[in-house]
Amino acid sequence: MTAADRAKSAVKSGSKRLLERAGFHLVRSTTPSGGVDDFIPFEPTMRAARAAGLSVGDYIDEVMNGTPGATQSTVDELRALGVFAAAPDTVLEIGPGSGRYLERTLKECVPSRYEIYETAEPWADYLVVTFGVIAQPVTGFNLDATPDNSVDLVQAHKVFNTLTFLGACRYFFEMARVTRPGGRIVFDVMTETCLDPEAMRIWATKGGAGHDSFPAAMPRRTCVDLFTTLGFSLEAAFLAPLGVAFTEVLVFKRDA
């Protein structure tokens, strides 16, 4: 082992010890197809956030992701675009996780119904108890429990960058199905807008080992063309922080 290798090993071991002291354990994915290897465990995250005197969302932004204010900046952009001024009465969120976008959404509007599709059961239970949302059963890449044309705002944040191309596409069709005429769909994807040569270099060198399927790229034109054929118009787009770089948030509105 060279001196450089020994130094890298020492840094890695030291980082692991610091995370474990905070209650986190790095877990290697056992799925043959790979994927995001690390996850956000419920109990350790809650304990660490309380110890830091931060909300769960702020703790994830500031400490775990190293991007203070990232969640709020996205919500601020959506507010400026008038997404919440439309006073959505029914909201559906795919993969809310810790609820950091959910919590801020509820500060911007007062829907009578907020549905979530979340695979992590402890987080889903926490969101139901804390925010009174409705946790729908997750069965594949669909929104089966939600009727057609029934939702004013469908959103997914930091979700499709972790899914396969086909998984994301299947959700896209479902999101379009459940959105009411005049309703909106908001989500972020890793488009070519986010992948200039410098961004690619950053992801390749600083993105972390074992994350070869993350972030998953999605052509921007593919999204826009698909939703156009489904009766939606692209209202706006903007960049939002994601790890060491950015992702692109797309805002679609269904034709009335």
Score class of each variant (00 low, 15 high):
residue 2 T to C: 08
residue 2 T to G: 13
residue 6 R to N: 07
residue 7 A to Y: 10
residue 7 A to L: 13
residue 8 K to M: 09
residue 16 K to C: 07
residue 26 L to R: 06
residue 27 V to G: 02
residue 37 D to F: 00
residue 37 D to Y: 04
residue 39 F to M: 02
residue 40 I to Y: 05
residue 44 P to F: 01
residue 50 R to K: 15
residue 50 R to D: 07
residue 51 A to G: 10
residue 53 G to N: 09
residue 57 G to L: 05
residue 58 D to M: 02
residue 58 D to C: 03
residue 60 I to N: 01
residue 65 N to V: 00
residue 68 P to R: 05
residue 71 T to Q: 01
residue 78 L to V: 05
residue 81 L to D: 06
residue 82 G to P: 04
residue 87 A to E: 15
residue 88 P to D: 11
residue 88 P to Q: 09
residue 90 T to P: 01
residue 91 V to H: 07
residue 91 V to T: 09
residue 93 E to R: 03
residue 94 I to W: 10
residue 96 P to E: 11
residue 103 E to V: 12
residue 106 L to T: 08
residue 106 L to Q: 08
residue 110 V to H: 12
residue 113 R to N: 12
residue 119 T to A: 14
residue 120 A to H: 12
residue 122 P to C: 06
residue 123 W to H: 02
residue 124 A to P: 03
residue 125 D to H: 05
residue 129 V to W: 02
residue 131 F to N: 07
residue 136 Q to A: 13
residue 138 V to G: 04
residue 138 V to W: 00
residue 146 T to V: 15
residue 148 D to K: 13
residue 148 D to Q: 13
residue 150 S to Q: 08
residue 152 D to A: 14
residue 154 V to F: 14
residue 158 K to E: 12
residue 166 L to E: 15
residue 168 A to H: 10
residue 168 A to E: 09
residue 170 R to P: 00
residue 170 R to M: 13
residue 171 Y to V: 09
residue 171 Y to C: 10
residue 176 A to I: 13
residue 178 V to D: 08
residue 193 T to R: 13
residue 198 E to N: 00
residue 206 K to E: 15
residue 206 K to Q: 15
residue 209 A to K: 08
residue 210 G to A: 04
residue 210 G to E: 05
residue 212 D to T: 08
residue 218 M to I: 10
residue 221 R to H: 11
residue 222 T to E: 01
residue 223 C to L: 07
residue 224 V to R: 11
residue 231 G to P: 04
residue 232 F to P: 07
residue 233 S to K: 12
residue 233 S to C: 06
residue 236 A to S: 12
residue 237 A to L: 11
residue 238 F to Y: 10
residue 244 V to P: 03
residue 245 A to R: 07
residue 247 T to C: 08
residue 247 T to L: 02
residue 249 V to A: 04
residue 250 L to F: 02
residue 251 V to M: 04
